[in-house]
């Protein structure tokens, strides 16, 4: 029995006292609860499509329909330029990281409130709660990514040699989703109003990101500033690595990465600062 106890999660010696000042992330604590992260993500995936008729097909339908709508309205009717690539591929390539981001963001913002029964009853590192939906969205991304590969083959487009950098841009999108998600989740725990702003936020952010149009529409002296919206960096990175369009990572990407870092670090900090009162205020 003793060895069973020893293999269980959670440290054996704990000092509980009010936390003050800068509260970093205890990576060891997070690591000890990694299985819980996995189980919560697994639950999110499992439950999401449980009562739907089409089930997991929704993962593919959502970006596919968005692509069709964009292709018809922006590509055909508005004649939006697509840097010489067939418009559907051009849009789909950007929609993938966008939907990963938007979905992860939406779900993790709501996560504290939807899991309040856990927060008020059991201890575990609270960061796990907003992280789980991000992990779950990653699976959706991978499935949709398979579809993208199919489209590339259909249009006979060979990814560039820089395709190995793709995970870096993916990482940027995830880091941003986590950063913004932490901010909004913590705020939402206190002010439920936040949840109503999220649909607007993602809607506006969608059009502020070069998904339906190329970032080259933004005139040069301003383009680096476009990176203030880090999703512009992510989308450009995806197009650059896969399609060979868009600029090679430069000023815009640097600004995007810097902004993401600021949002992520401040998000973790704000979250850790407020998590001590989650159980009291939620």
């Amino acid at each position: 029995m003793v060895d069973r106890v020893a293999e269980a999660a959670g440290p054996a010696h704990v000092v509980i006292r009010p936390s003050t000042g800068w509260t970093g992330v205890s990576l060891r604590d997070l690591w000890a609860y990694r299985e819980l992260l996995y189980f919560l993500a697994w639950r999110d995936i499992k439950v999401r499509y449980k009562q739907t008729a089409l089930g997991v097909i929704w993962v593919v339908i959502q970006p596919l329909f968005a692509m069709l709508v964009f292709s018809v309205f922006f590509g055909r009717l508005a004649g939006m330029p697509s840097d010489g690539v067939p418009y559907p591929v051009f849009a789909f390539c950007a929609l993938l990281p966008w939907q990963l981001f938007a979905h992860a963001l939406t779900e993790s913002s709501a996560s504290l409130v939807t899991n309040q029964n856990l927060i008020t009853k059991v201890y575990f590192p609270r960061l796990i709660i907003p992280l789980a939906p991000v992990l779950a969205s990653l699976l959706d991304f991978l499935i949709a990514f398979g579809l993208l590969l199919g489209m590339l083959a259909y249009y006979r487009i060979t990814p560039t040699l820089w395709v190995w950098t793709l995970p870096l841009f993916l990482l940027l999108a995830i880091a941003l989703a986590i950063g913004v998600g932490l901010w909004l989740a913590a705020l939402n725990a206190r002010y439920r109003d936040v949840r109503y702003t999220i649909p607007f936020l993602t809607q506006i952010w969608l059009f502020a990101t070069p998904i339906a149009y190329p970032s080259s529409l933004v005139p040069e002296p301003w383009r680096a500033w476009y990176g203030l919206n880090p999703m512009a960096g992510v989308v450009d990175g995806f197009r650059w690595a896969l399609l060979g369009t868009a600029d090679a990572p430069g000023g815009l990407m640097a600004v995007s990465a810097a902004v993401t870092l600021v949002i992520l670090v401040s998000g973790v900090h704000y979250f850790r600062r407020t998590e001590r009162t989650f159980a009291d205020t939620i």
Binding site: A8, G10, I16, P18, T120, Y123
Partner: peptide, 21 residues
């Protein structure tokens, strides 16, 4: 407080052993 769901305002607790609540 003992199960670490909420933090104390002041004071401290030392727990030796895994806690199940």
């Amino acid at each position: 407080i003992l199960s670490r769901i909420t933090e104390p305002t002041t004071g401290s607790v030392v727990l030796d052993g895994r806690v199940g609540s």
